[in-house]
Design a binder for these strands. Structure first.
Length: 491
DNA sequence: CCGCCGGACTCAGAAATATCGGC
DNA sequence: AGCCGATATTTCTGAGTCCGGCG
């Protein structure tokens, strides 16, 4: 934290000092009340030294310690469900520390106390042996809820109403089945999408304010893959989704273009301009008329109402399904441009480009790494150097391998150019999130089969494990089912 | 009915850690 | 061939969505 700018934020400092003072109260250090007079350098140096020591270990030592750790943890990484022994996900409780919310979080800096066995509820089979709590401690409760999939849970110590759970890992049957169901539902949305679009286009012109707002909200969800946006408590960061968009979050530009500028999940900025449907544009103008920037645009609807309406059109349909649908069908469409005779590397580039388009659609971002500019500069140096080498090689007409060497240099040049281009283009775009959560793995795996690309070119080992249920999909798998008529994206 | 809220699960980027690849 | 910085992958935990039960 000392390396971050948290200490310059008044909210962080206040929350931290409140907790710190409470901890020091009645002790010999109760006189400490002023953050600006505190110097934590000694602690900082202490932890830095520990890190240094770790670094200095030989690789053998490191390996040995890791192996021992794996052995020690092994018993906690498995659980049996319906007679199957399956991998557990997060089996460790969260250690104490300072809470760091995302964005301008009102609780940043609060001290996160240690979670003790007395906080933990164990959920286990009636006849199973209950794990022993640490010596001298007891569990808060032991329950036998066979309708929930969590193994243990506790109330979060910062947002006390929230629960934290120990769950099965991504490779487990429960997770795999639910993942599969998610993609099947998104896939079936395709069969209803024309009906849904007709429905909202008609309803946008409804006299009923609720109906019109329902329609425009659904349109934005369909076209832009926005999140639902539920009401949030005051003690959380101020972020929005479709239903909580406020008048100040949109700007009306010429030619039915709207600029969206708001903070979404994790306080990630959504800043995009889109040309939208003319009727929807006019509706939005009507909805914000006479409203100040802080007033809700959709004051007559909420996610429950939108979802309830969606379910009159397709069973089980909710707002988030559109995100999955949109992401997957976009990948499906873009991968069709893969060239048969390309090298694996080129095919991978096509895949990454499609993945990138999905990431932009879903607004999946990442912070620019601290070293980015320096790294780019280094690559630019390399580029200059290569250019010089090429120029020199051109002069060496006496070298009988001149042609060959020149070709090799040119090859390096073009590779470097691609690398630099990619690095710059992806400096704020995060590809992983959509790969893990939004893209039907069968699209990717059937593409791998058709184009003879090994799955590990596009999926990490963990993803290959997670998507084991999709591995044997057919080569001809299509996210859009064969019997479906051709449908264009929302306009 | 409908709105509210607790509960359970999915999804999110940052940080930590492991592996890679160029000199 | 081995070191070191860059890149890839995994871990962590915070932040959403949505359902169902209750008043």
């Amino acid at each position: 934290m000392k390396d971050s700018d948290y200490a310059t934020k008044p909210v962080f400092v206040k929350n931290f000092m409140d907790g710190f003072k409470a901890a020091l109260k009645n002790g010999p250090h109760a006189f400490i009340t002023d953050f600006s007079k505190c110097d934590f350098t000694k602690m900082y140096m202490h932890f830095l030294a520990i890190r240094e020591k770790k670094k200095e270990m030989t690789s053998e030592e490191k390996k040995r310690i890791k192996a021992q750790k794996d052995i020690d943890e092994e018993p906690y990484t498995w659980a049996t469900i319906d007679g199957r022994r399956e991998k557990v996900g997060n089996f460790r409780v969260e250690p104490p520390g300072l809470f760091r919310g995302r964005g301008e979080h009102p609780k940043m800096g609060k001290i996160k106390r240690r979670v003790v066995p007395e906080d933990i509820t164990i959920n286990i089979g009636k006849d199973a042996k209950v794990p022993e709590p640490p010596a001298g401690h007891s569990w808060k409760a032991v329950i036998h809820n066979d309708t929930a999939t969590w193994l243990a849970g506790w109330n979060d110590v910062i947002n006390v109403k929230d629960w934290k759970y120990v769950q099965f890992g991504a490779t487990s049957t429960v997770k795999a089945e639910s993942d599969q169901k998610k993609y099947e539902k998104a896939r079936s949305l395709h069969k209803y999408i024309e009906k849904i679009r007709k429905d909202y286009k008609r309803n946008m012109m409804s006299e009923s304010k609720e109906m019109a707002q329902l329609a425009v909200a659904t349109y934005l969800v369909d076209k832009l893959a926005l999140r639902a946006g539920g009401e949030k408590d005051e003690d959380l960061a101020d972020t929005v989704g479709v239903c909580t968009l406020r008048a100040g979050h949109i700007k009306f530009m010429d030619d039915n273009v709207i600029e969206f500028d708001f903070l979404g999940k994790d306080s990630i900025q959504y800043l995009q301009q889109h040309k939208i449907d003319e009727v929807a544009y006019k509706c939005l103008q009507r909805f914000v008329q006479g409203k100040g920037p802080d007033v809700d645009i959709f004051d007559h609807v909420d996610p429950q109402k939108v979802n309830a309406h969606l379910q009159t059109l397709m069973p089980g349909l909710t707002i988030k399904v559109f995100r999955t649908y949109n992401a997957s069908i976009t990948l499906d469409r873009l991968l069709k441009d893969t060239k048969k005779n390309d090298t694996t590397l080129q095919k991978k580039a096509t895949y990454d480009a499609a993945n990138k388009e999905v990431a932009i659609l879903c607004n999946h971002q990442k912070g620019v790494s601290k070293a980015h500019d320096a790294q780019m500069e280094k690559l630019a140096e390399k580029k200059k150097d290569l250019a010089k080498q090429v120029a020199e090689m051109k002069k060496k007409t006496d070298d009988k391998n001149q042609k060959k060497k020149l070709a090799a240099l040119k090859e390096r040049q073009s590779k470097l150019a691609i690398q630099m281009n990619m690095k710059e283009e992806l400096k704020t775009v995060s590809l992983g999130t959509s790969k893990i959560n939004y893209l039907d793995p069968r699209i990717t795996l059937s593409w791998c089969k058709r184009h003879e690309v090994p799955p590990n070119v596009v999926f990490t080992k963990a993803l290959i494990d997670k998507f084991h249920w999709a591995m044997d999909c057919e080569m001809e798998f299509s996210f859009v089912q064969e019997d479906a008529v051709e449908v264009k994206p929302a306009e």
